[in-house]
Design a protein around this nucleic acid. Sequence first.
DNA 1: AAGAAAGGCAACCGCCTGCCT
DNA 2: TAGGCAGGCGGTTGCCTTTCT
Length: 415
Amino acid sequence: MHEFFISSAVISSSVCSIPAGVLHRERCLIFAIWWFLLFWEANDSCEREKGKEQIGEKELLVYIRDSHAHETPVGDWTKGKKKGGGGGGIEAVVSHQAVAMGRPPCCDKVGIKKGPWTPEEDIILVSYIQQHGPGNWRSVPSNTGLMRCSKSCRLRWTNYLRPGIKRGNFTPHEEGIIIHLQSLLGNKWAAIASYLPQRTDNDIKNYWNTHLKKKLEKSHTATDGYKMSSGTSPSCHDYVPEGCDMETRKQDITVLTFPLPSMGLTPSIYACSTGNISRLLEGWARSSQKNTQGKLQERAIADDSHSSNNDATAAASVGEKSRDAGDQGRGAAMAHQDLETLLSFENMSGGSWEKTAAGKAPFADAEAKQGGENHQPPLSLLEKWLFDEASGQMRKQDKRGFSVHGPKALSTRKN
DNA sequence: AAGAAAGGCAACCGCCTGCCT
DNA sequence: TAGGCAGGCGGTTGCCTTTCT
């Protein structure tokens, strides 16, 4: 099963390696096939393990075996940025034999792979979570064969693979939220992230440490680098992000007055994970474009008609299977939506992505409403609530009070 | 053009909390 | 009630990329 996913990753990356604009349609078709097969596989692994062979899989594997003998680069494949490449000291070698032997990974230091995740690992993890849902992380390494500790799996999911994650530059809008909340809550990144569900706490933390902190320091030293709202000394409250006027900033805060986003994950949005994977694979593939470009171009042309046939077969199969079970049906509905996205994925890089996968988050709806004439509760409500939380935290004399009792903690911690 | 420095960010580490037995 | 365990969080590290000299 894992072989299939790994192979799918390779084939999709290969397709994406074709120069944009040369074989765009072909690339999209093959990419869609890969996506459907990925989804299909996630919902039908039991039958597969009984030895049934799916139409098209064999051909795909043959294709991969013939055309891709190269190793998947170790490193930050999502950005074409290798981290820890060439060994790096902490990078353990994954032995497929060891996986096959079934040695259960645990959190001891021996046999645990560290360092950047490979596309293969990501796909394995996503496929597993598609079937079982997030949680019970301890069982993930043993059940998937991943040579990672449970924490690493959870972190990878929450920080990178989780559906709806928005990457890229922070908008002045988001900056305003972070700055304001940081001034209210301190370095409670998880709490802050709960108001920016498209961003991870790690992302926010990094952005704060690398950008916003410096900006604030800069603004404090420069006399006209900040706007004094009241009082005599500058504070985080007074900072107005570049390109964000005070009115915009008010809107930033009003976003927070919307109902707290549900951090719970539903089966339907797991499908978005594969969207993430698809997007990431694209980036990864582009990074290795130079290596495989010419060769793959020929093969993509040759496989065009063949892939189209598989496309129809796979799509039909997904449709059939999805009618059998409720959850799977919802997933298939999502699959159709995402297929449309995939088919227009020349626009995937940049803002369009945010409008597709991330746009499904409830918070995005709230943001969209902002643009209209909708009136949000007054700013003071939020701030009052936040201060109440903070004061309650102090009363409890709990060192990590907010992280425990804060919004995200309430929604994520098990009961 | 080459080396150095700074920037950026994914991932790791250690601690903490809450649940379960 | 105490101990073990799983999961969550914030701080930090390490390495690649970009910019500067």
